[in-house]
Design a protein around this nucleic acid. Sequence first.
DNA 1: TTCCAGGTATTAC
DNA 2: GTAATACATGGA
Length: 331
Amino acid sequence: MTPHVPAPATQPEPGTQRCLLPARNYDLAATLDSGQSFAWTLVGDAWEGVAHQCWIRLRQVPDGIEATTPLPDPKSPALRRVGLLAPDKARETCAVAASGQAVESGSPWLTAYLQTDLDLSAIVDTFPPDAPLIEAVKCCGGLRILRQDPWECLASFLLSATKQIVQIRQICATLRRRFGSPIAVPAGHTPAFAFPSAQTLASTTESDLRQCGMGFRARYLHQTARRVARGDLDLLNLRSLPLDAARTRLLELPGVGPKISECVLLFSCDQPRAFPIDVWVARALRRLYYHGRRVPAGELRELAATHFGPWAGHAQQFLFHYARRYARLTH
DNA sequence: TTCCAGGTATTAC
DNA sequence: GTAATACATGGA
């Protein structure tokens, strides 16, 4: 499927810098709106959101993804953590960008976040050649998996239990507004906030969190934030552990079960075999691989672990997006 | 009004 | 070991 590609803008707006991340076979809309991140909003023909504590605007353009960020403001040290480059490098490029040129140099952290360097067709080639996957890939080609911050990913999915994606997005936005640090945005833009750290959330109360509309999930988020804040679990170190070890550590956290742990492993811990099975994926697996029969959860897990190969998580994301967006699979 | 939402922990067989 | 149930909240 070919994503809609709007015409490129010519000039970055004043006070911002822009760069192009070359990418082939990349569907930005499918990627940002497929329930893996809850940080992005469609504004006109672009997606606005916050990643790595930076406000960003992303647009699909013919050669890849165009990214816009605010220029660093030397008068606001608290808001200085902005830009497509590390802050020191960003200052060097200010003059160039402010003069109206697009910044063409790379931005390693954004490339890593969006995974624009990954060869998606090589991944798809590793999938088993079965009809359901072929159909899902045909419908959702260009769907990527982001590499998110582990804490934001864990906290967001703790809030996901029996919530619609639109509501998870709302709760995350409220959490940012109430507890996140303000970050730089283009002049005149509505304020944006970083995702609050585990330390910050640990220092609030369960009742404070509950007022963000998260209901019973507040206790899980608060308790997990406290454990992470006091160092029981080093989330970044999780990325260097083998799959089983990382999974075991995550499952020790309150409110984290088999589904949420797989989400964190797949979306933030470099574990492409991780395979979250939620209601949609379970429904899709039953419908597409078992003729709609009732199948024990254990059998679905067995299929997930053995059938889809080294990039099973991507297969899962195709099936999830396909079921939700195109097939509208119901019970 | 009733049902359901990218689940998990607890309790009951 | 597997099957029901409570858990808050808001949108459809």
